[in-house]
Design a protein around this nucleic acid. Structure first.
Lengths: 168, 168
DNA sequence: TTGATTACCATGATTTCCCATGGCATCCCT
DNA sequence: AGGGATGCCATGGGAAATCATGGTAATCAA
């Protein structure tokens, strides 16, 4: 297994048709996370766009999506929590696939939603990756909400301290 | 199997005869969920309209309907629960099929019930999909009932936290 | 017959597919 | 170490297929 996490950050052009290259490293993760994937074919991707609160696109593998769907099915059918999740992950989402040349097509609706003109940023977050408009990305990453329990000036690696399950 | 869930959201015109295009992605799911489906034919759909409490149409594949019918058969025959389910899923429902051009015909009765004038919204919810009138849909989605345990401002992904069945 | 339903045909717009190019990095040969 | 040659990667454009939608004709039911 080559790579199982989405790691890294990169900028890509978005053309007039909404086509945008997926970082090559991410494509491999997508292929590995697609149960239907066979050599030479094109892996599928799930793009979650959510409602107005989200100003980026959350992308994941089919396997990750399956896991979420299974979790939802275990929740009480009419609970507000389940409905909120269903709306976000089933309604406000899109299943598509990487094309022959390694690109993804973002429909105009999604491009407008997150304010992409002609360039996008891909940001790996481990299990998922995000797509941002370059402008939004640069603004959002500088101001971190003033949470009580959170010090923006502290090096994040501090949060890793303690409680190790040791493995490989 | 290309896709197993109804995922996505889209708007479609409803003409004077009640014809409305089904999103192409949904048609594939319907075909996959129709045991009688053969290449080149038209898949069947189940439309559950229910009673006055429902202001949208719930649609599903034949397979999903079979599953529901089997569940009902296991319930005590005269129980109020079974009767209520039967009324909804057997009486207040409609089995029809997608036409040659990928459309569904909604009888006037159903269009009136959910208040469709000339545009409908299709909303995937995973196992099923819903059909709404555009107006109702927009109203209904913005006000979420003020449940105690539920914060409409919280990003829904929080509800996924914890309790991982690992995995695959 | 008349209103309604179903089948058939037509068309513009979008989306998908296929081919082409330039850049950058790596490999290899001498 | 030069200097191709090779191959993947990002990006672009045009052709072809699909999709959404509208209209008209045929069929059916009462």
């Amino acid at each position: 297994m080559s790579q199982q996490w989405f790691i890294g950050e990169s900028h890509h052009k978005v053309d007039t048709k909404g086509r945008v290259s997926i970082p090559a490293a991410f494509r491999k993760v997508l292929a590995a996370g697609d149960p239907e994937f066979s050599e030479g074919a094109n892996p599928q991707v799930v793009v979650v766009y959510g409602d107005a609160r989200r100003d980026y696109l959350e992308c994941m593998t089919i396997k990750a999506m399956n896991k979420i769907q299974r979790k939802m099915l275990k929740m009480p059918p009419a609970s507000p929590q389940r409905r909120a999740l269903q709306k976000m992950y089933s309604t406000q989402a899109l299943v598509t696939s990487v094309d022959e040349t390694g690109r993804l097509v973002l429909p105009a609706k999604l491009r407008n939603k997150i304010g992409i003109s002609n360039e996008a940023v891909f940001a790996g977050t481990g299990e998922n990756f995000q797509i941002w408009s370059t402008e939004t990305y640069e603004i959002e990453n500088g101001l971190v909400t003033g949470d009580d329990d959170f010090d923006p000036d502290l090096d994040p690696s501090h949060y890793l301290f303690g409680d190790d399950e040791d493995e490989e």
